[in-house]
Nucleic acid binder design. Sequence first.
RNA 1: CGGGGAGUGGCGCAGCGUGGUAGCGCACCUGCUUUGGGAGCAGGGGGUCGGGGGUUCAAGUCCCCCCUCCCCGACCA
Length: 568
Amino acid sequence: MRMTRLATKTQREAPADAEAESHQLLVRAGYIRRLASGVYSFLPLGLKVLAKLNQIVREELDSAGAQEVMLSALHPVELWEQTGRIETMSDVLMRVEAKGGSFVLGPTHEEAVIATIAPDLESYRDLPVTVYQIQTKFRDEARPRFGLMRTREFVMADGYSFDASAEGMKASYQQMYEAYLRIFDRLQLPYVPVEADSGAIGGDVNHEFMVPSPIGEDYFAHCESCGYAANIEAARRGPQREAEIGEVEPMSVVSTPETSSIQELVRFFRSRGENFEENNFLKSIACKDAADEITIILIPGDREARIPKGLAPLANSDFDSFSFLFKGYIGPMQMQEQGVKVVADFSVLESQSWITGANLDGHHVINAQPDRDFIVDELGSFVVVQNGDPCPSCGSDLKLIRSVEAGHTFQLGLAYSSKIPGATFKAENGLDEKFWMGCYGIGMSRLPAVLAEHFHDSSGLMWPASVAPFQVEILTISPGKFPEVVAYCDSIYRQLLELKVEVLYDDRDIAPGVKFADADLLGIPKIVTIGQRGLSAGMVEVKDRLSGERIEVEANLLVEHLRANGVQ
RNA sequence: CGGGGAGUGGCGCAGCGUGGUAGCGCACCUGCUUUGGGAGCAGGGGGUCGGGGGUUCAAGUCCCCCCUCCCCGACCA
């Protein structure tokens, strides 16, 4: 590509709406342009990067036995009514009313893939099958962020596996999981596969592929000592070091009117000259399960609860049904007598005594001691983990790492196939059975941002060769003045093109400084500077953008040199 | 959805307090000069000042309503 023919230009200054460095550089260098909030067009350079990424995904998923398809982006609304996600995902669904009826712009394709593929999967003999697509998705995000990071329209590579059994699903999952490892290896980004919470998509075992990054919107807990890694929503903490048991004064009831929150309690005691911190209070969270059985979860007052699946905190209206529970004044004492189970976070045993609800409106108890004053039926991890919490597998300190969710793999089980009629196959015994499914996603259009965030310096982008829009840039010095330089550069350009090398030729007759600055901004891995000065001595300069290393190369050996140094 | 900030040529910004010819840098066009790290001189083109309403002889500037964008939070297959 000749730069004089390139459809885009660089900009010296980034638009004011670009905050993240990756966003600023991608816009300045002419890779992307914003059309609306959270809506970006890919310009020629940006599209080349995206195409490179897509190709890596294709190669690895194909080699894992997955088959590429393209499902429609427009889904009939009836499909979404079958699974109920027309309601549960209404926040992000974009609707389209058209002549043919009502449609949804697909934010994800579980429904569509079943409707498309299931008709051909009639028998267990047809299974397993894994398909994938690289498709544009639409989500009506409440708040798009950081350029390509979170957008309303984005490209995702999403795969779906169909199996006849749970074991089959696990095997398919494992194949895709390993393909994901190979994909992220090839992207040359640091990444960590973490245990994750499956969120609204449902399902069981799943992993997120997290790339540590300042533009990340997620955190994962990581243990440097044993390698434990889990998304913040799924992370567990381990038991704390032994707490020493000492003498604690007898528990007593105090009147604490109008103190249904920890903050109000802290203020209440402070106003009486007694200074307690939030972590002196024991938060008792009453939850119920599907059978209306009550479980009380105990956590320190300064921690955020992580409510296990299957339990939900009582709604205000629920309190009417349980007269022994006073909202804001719940404590664990004697709860077993009411048929209530008491579970506590490990950290609850780290303190000798607590201030907690007295199970009496407007009252709390002080000096409530575990084992002496209340019984904990079960210990576990019920808090959102923080820096310094003990690792659940080895006890070392956990660290929270800000990161981008770049990929996510799920074992869906029967979650979707059980909701869609026709998501069945004939089993060996001749009966209809439901598909065991997995789904797998990579946020393709956010990857250029993640890469740019990782691979840049103060002058601009620095793409790894595997994803760079071009492998080599030829930079001519003052072509308008030195015809012999132009002749040489044209010849090199032609040779490289014939060798199918992706080459960008900066043939513009402008000040050299501008060309150097643009070359650094664009971030092509190899920059060949060719000027009259060097050429008259038979030399050209080759700069490696990533390492910054510059070497002089004999002009008549340039092509061979490039080929010998990884330029394909 | 809550809080904060901002909308003036393609991009970055000034002008608004105290109403009176719309300005600067980058980019763009023409010419000459220049040519190994964001060139110089001269000339030139391009803006319903986010939109609507109002006040006024006169509104980019004052008042009201709306829209859009960014940041923090809530939310987030």
